[in-house]
Design a protein around this nucleic acid. Structure first.
Lengths: 252, 252
DNA sequence: TCGCGGCACTTGTTTGGACAAGTTTCCACG
DNA sequence: CGTGGAAACTTGTCCAAACAAGTGCCGCGA
């Protein structure tokens, strides 16, 4: 058996199947090839193929029971991670046209809150980005981000209206791995009101985010404020099921 | 090999380990026994033991990498379902003392919104409950629930200040199985303001809930309004991780 | 004393085989 | 023509073995 030195075989099998599903070659509800067929196709043993299928199963991509070939589950939902991190990608997935206006990119000393969340001393230089995000041209969300300096410096050659900051950072080797989002409500201040075209004091849905990279180092602190008449968060959960709650960000 | 007819061996191995973790016999951060030890203990082959460990891994209970024995991860948290359904139970888990004042229990025709969500005609009788929920005596949340009639009638013999409605309903054979929560922000109206001791128009964190029973029938529609300075929602997620996002309702 | 190499141990990957249990298909029988 | 049941096929469970790759520790040498 010739073995590729790059990636484990079960990874490649899983990736291949994921690709077929996302490209639509395997329609929703369609049955996957049987384990025996996959063994032959990839030249793998059954254990390896089953390992790949197990991965797809607990990503929720496929379902099915004993005796029946596994079927592609509907709602081949993208990982909610990107949904929560990238406004641009989220909007596209919703079928909306994302837009943005970068109000400010600045290098300045961290505020007390940002310093606390990022784990640096108050006044340590950070890069702050203030962006107004639009859906189909309508001001929808105001994003205040603070990046630690070594990451934020990569943003000075970022096209301010060029789309996703996260895609830009990923190209430069920064991959955000984990995030914690805290959701509450807050009244619009004067800046919020002006940019989002709402009255001062109007209730806004706020999502504060702390993102960390692969090593666990804290990279970004953000304060996003949504117009609650345009965006809501939805959580589905089922009792007793080990099925995890499903989170969605939705437009009304 | 004598085989038990009851449950697959890898299930029993996983259950045993889950038990040790939840009972604290395996402390957070502690290393699990090596695969070889588990094989001997359960008289299982390594493949079977690995199957059990894989299950724990994608439940997020254990972590660790190649070469190192797996370690117990923190946050072996209870199912978030009850947390999201029962204010009483949630408060107790947070170490706070839940309280409540039932403002009104009424049988009246469904409002348009409630009728829509519950899937009945507008004006169909429903039971509405308006309750003010307290944490350590402080007004924290205002809950407006509408139950369909056959369920809601069980509430007329419910002790208005006796704790959890859900526990009461469960005793009488109604078990809520699934719920969808929609989160946004809204300004306080006069009723909200008076009961929650805040100014009219102050931003509130709103969670609207549609709960269904085991058959999928819609049972409750609720509109809960939290003081955002007292309660927030938190979502943890990790990229690429098959680990599902983790949702928490927190007090500040 | 400090550092580095190697060894023991651990998990990761993969194969091959065997039997159990559930589903589908289709033929033969009534 | 319909139905029951066997056969073929599928996934679930389990074992045994081997090698690869990463981690940690111990001891040897400088």
């Amino acid at each position: 058996m010739v073995k590729s030195v790059t990636q484990p075989l079960h990874h490649r099998v899983a990736d291949s199947l994921r690709g077929r599903i996302s490209r639509g070659q395997l329609a929703v509800g369609a049955a996957l090839p049987s384990e025996a067929q996959l063994c032959e196709e990839f030249g793998a043993s059954r254990g390896t193929v089953r390992q790949a299928l197990a991965a797809l199963r607990n990503e929720g991509l496929i379902g099915g029971g004993q005796g029946k070939p596994p079927v592609v589950r509907q709602a081949a939902v993208a990982q909610p991670f990107e949904t929560f991190l990238s406004f641009t990608r989220w909007a596209r997935e919703m079928g909306r046209e994302p837009g943005q206006r970068t109000v400010e990119v600045a290098r300045r000393g961290a505020s007390q809150v940002a310093a606390d969340v990022l784990g640096v001393d108050e006044g340590t230089p950070v890069i702050e980005v203030l962006r107004l995000r639009l859906l189909d041209g309508i001001p929808t969300m105001l994003e205040r981000s603070s990046f630690i300096e070594p990451v934020g410096r990569l943003l000075f050659d970022f096209d301010p209206d060029g789309g996703s900051i996260y895609a830009h950072l990923l190209d430069r080797g920064i991959d955000l791995r984990a995030a914690r989002h805290t959701i509450d409500a807050i009244g619009a201040n004067e800046t919020d009101a002006e940019l989002l075209s709402i009255p001062v004091g109007a209730p806004l849905l706020r999502e504060r985010r702390r993102a960390t990279d692969a090593t666990g180092a804290r990279v970004e602190y953000a304060d996003d404020r949504y117009r609650p008449d345009l965006v809501t968060f939805t959580i589905d959960n089922v009792q007793a099921g080990r099925v995890s709650p499903h989170i969605l960000k939705e437009t009304s």
